[in-house]
Amino acid sequence: MAAAAAAGAGPEMVRGQVFDVGPRYTNLSYIGEGAYGMVCSAYDNVNKVRVAIKKISPFEHQTYCQRTLREIKILLRFRHENIIGINDIIRAPTIEQMKDVYIVQDLMETDLYKLLKTQHLSNDHICYFLYQILRGLKYIHSANVLHRDLKPSNLLLNTTCDLKICDFGLARVADPDHDHTGFLTEYVATRWYRAPEIMLNSKGYTKSIDIWSVGCILAEMLSNRPIFPGKHYLDQLNHILGILGSPSQEDLNCIINLKARNYLLSLPHKNKVPWNRLFPNADSKALDLLDKMLTFNPHKRIEVEQALAHPYLEQYYDPSDEPIAEAPFKFDMELDDLPKEKLKELIFEETARFQPGYRS
């Protein structure tokens, strides 16, 4: 834990890192770190609560700039109880001085990944967590956004079992017609939660990839272990087919990539493993919904509104309290091709509203 900075004593240090967030945020305490930044909790002297502050230093890398800009653009436009918001952003007053960006968010005690390492969940908890994931996802999908990296560590939890989806750095506007060349190379989302079509096709992607990830998360809540822990690309596919069985001819016809289709045709026939054999203690309604989410063919996979209306979630289902976005989200430009200098300018502009004396 960093010592509390005395008023006016300059930035606090946390594990050798400068955290320049005073005077409003003090009493910093280390939480963890990701690929390009550290997260601390801090005391907000204005709202009198502890908050989470993520320090991001992305400006050396085009990919990190892209992810940072995506996350900020999306989260500043989203407003939903099951999606983490941005409360404040701290950065230098000029673009030349801006080396880091500090993002202030609600402090959540833990995440689903940490929880599943230590606790076996009751059916009631599984049901409530799944409902909140789908409630947040309904809003995301209504904005025409794909999260693309749903996994237990991106689901934040607090002691009252509130759940918030975080990390929109890989999110995209849904565009089933656009052929994202190089899709697989830039697709760094965790393999275990990846839909089979991501490994088999490169053309376009749809909201059904997020539903697949939610199915993987439900299976993990039922058993405290990942359902498809593939060691590499082909191993991942083999794990999936080992449980779902061989795809039907109709399902194979959806695979545009001939090499991928021929690979699947070359494999020995596998039978589907019954879900109640894998999860003998699970609620039968939970397994019915799991089956509809972990469907090989993305066109037959359940959609988020149908999933919310499934009998497993009937005690929570309330369409009048499951809000959607006001308007579909649009990125003005494809960020993939922009140089990091341009992305830095866009991050600077996007964060201006939090600067003292800002006038829109």
Results as ranks from 00 to 15, higher is better:
Ala4Ile: 06
Ala6Lys: 04
Gly8His: 10
Gly10Ala: 12
Gly10His: 08
Pro11Thr: 14
Pro11Val: 07
Arg15Met: 15
Gln17Leu: 13
Phe19Val: 14
Phe19Gln: 12
Phe19His: 08
Glu33Arg: 08
Gly34Asn: 00
Gly37Glu: 12
Gly37Gln: 04
Met38Ala: 12
Val39Ile: 10
Ser41Cys: 12
Ala52Arg: 06
Lys54Cys: 00
Ile56Met: 09
Ile56Arg: 13
Ser57His: 07
Phe59Pro: 15
Glu60Gly: 11
Glu60Leu: 14
Cys65Ile: 14
Gln66Glu: 13
Arg67Met: 13
Arg67Val: 14
Leu69Ser: 11
Leu69Asn: 06
Glu71Gln: 02
Ile72Lys: 06
Arg77Leu: 15
Phe78Cys: 12
Arg79Asp: 02
His80Asn: 11
Glu81Ser: 14
Asn82Arg: 02
Ile84Lys: 04
Ile86Glu: 01
Ile86Thr: 00
Ile86Arg: 00
Asp88Lys: 00
Asp88Ala: 08
Asp88Thr: 02
Ala92Pro: 02
Thr94Phe: 13
Glu96Arg: 09
Gln97Ile: 05
Met98Thr: 00
Lys99Gln: 13
Asp100Asn: 15
Asp100Trp: 12
Asp100Ala: 14
Val101Leu: 15
Ile103Arg: 06
Ile103Ser: 11
Asp106Met: 02
Leu107Glu: 14
Thr110His: 05
Thr110Ala: 10
Tyr113Glu: 03
Leu121Val: 04
Leu121Gln: 14
Leu121Arg: 00
Ser122Gln: 09
Ser122Lys: 05
Asp124Glu: 14
Asp124Lys: 02
Asp124Met: 07
Cys127His: 07
Phe129Gly: 02
Phe129Cys: 00
Gly136Phe: 06
Gly136Met: 03
Lys138Thr: 08
Tyr139Asn: 14
His141Glu: 09
His141Ser: 12
Leu146Trp: 05
Leu150Met: 14
Leu150Val: 04
Lys151Ser: 05
Pro152Tyr: 01
Pro152Val: 04
Pro152Met: 06
Asn154Leu: 12
Leu155Thr: 01
Asn158Thr: 11
Ile165Ala: 02
Phe168Asp: 01
Leu170Asn: 02
Arg172Tyr: 01
Val173Ala: 12
Asp175Ser: 06
Asp179Thr: 10
His180Gly: 12
Gly182Ser: 02
Gly182Met: 11
Phe183Asp: 06
Phe183Ile: 15
Thr185Cys: 07
Tyr187Arg: 03
Thr190Lys: 03
Trp192Met: 09
Tyr193Glu: 07
Tyr193Trp: 08
Lys203Gly: 11
Gly204Pro: 07
Tyr205Val: 09
Tyr205Arg: 13
Ser208Gln: 06
Ser208Ile: 04
Cys216Glu: 09
Ile217Leu: 09
Leu218His: 05
Ala219Thr: 12
Ala219Asn: 06
Glu220Thr: 07
Glu220Cys: 04
Ile227Asn: 13
Ile227Arg: 03
Phe228Trp: 08
Pro229Met: 06
Pro229Phe: 01
His232Val: 01
Leu234Ala: 13
Asp235Pro: 04
Gln236Tyr: 02
Leu237His: 06
Gly245Ala: 08
Gly245Asn: 01
Gly245Glu: 03
Ser248Cys: 07
Glu250Cys: 11
Asp251Lys: 01
Leu252Glu: 08
Cys254Ala: 10
Cys254Arg: 11
Cys254Phe: 12
Ile256Met: 08
Ile256Gly: 09
Arg261Lys: 10
Arg261Met: 06
Asn262Cys: 01
Leu265Lys: 03
Ser266Val: 06
Ser266Asn: 12
Leu267Ile: 03
Pro268Lys: 05
Lys270Leu: 11
Lys272His: 03
Asn276Met: 02
Arg277Gln: 06
Pro280Met: 11
Asp283Phe: 08
Ser284Gln: 09
Ala286Gly: 05
Leu289Ala: 06
Asp291Arg: 12
Lys300Leu: 10
Lys300Phe: 09
Ile302Val: 05
Ile302Cys: 05
Val304Tyr: 04
Glu305Arg: 08
Gln306Ala: 04
Ala307Glu: 00
Ala309Asn: 04
His310Gln: 13
Pro311Ile: 09
Pro311His: 14
Leu313Phe: 10
Glu314Met: 02
Gln315Ile: 06
Tyr316Thr: 06
Asp321Ile: 03
Glu322Ser: 01
Ala325Cys: 00
Ala327Gln: 01
Pro328Gln: 04
Phe329Trp: 03
Lys330Met: 15
Asp336Thr: 10
Asp337Lys: 08
Leu338Gln: 15
Pro339Ala: 08
Lys340Val: 04
Glu345Cys: 03
Ile347Leu: 13
Phe348Met: 12
Glu349Leu: 02
Glu349Tyr: 05
Tyr358Ala: 09
Tyr358Gln: 11
Arg359Cys: 04
Ser360Tyr: 14
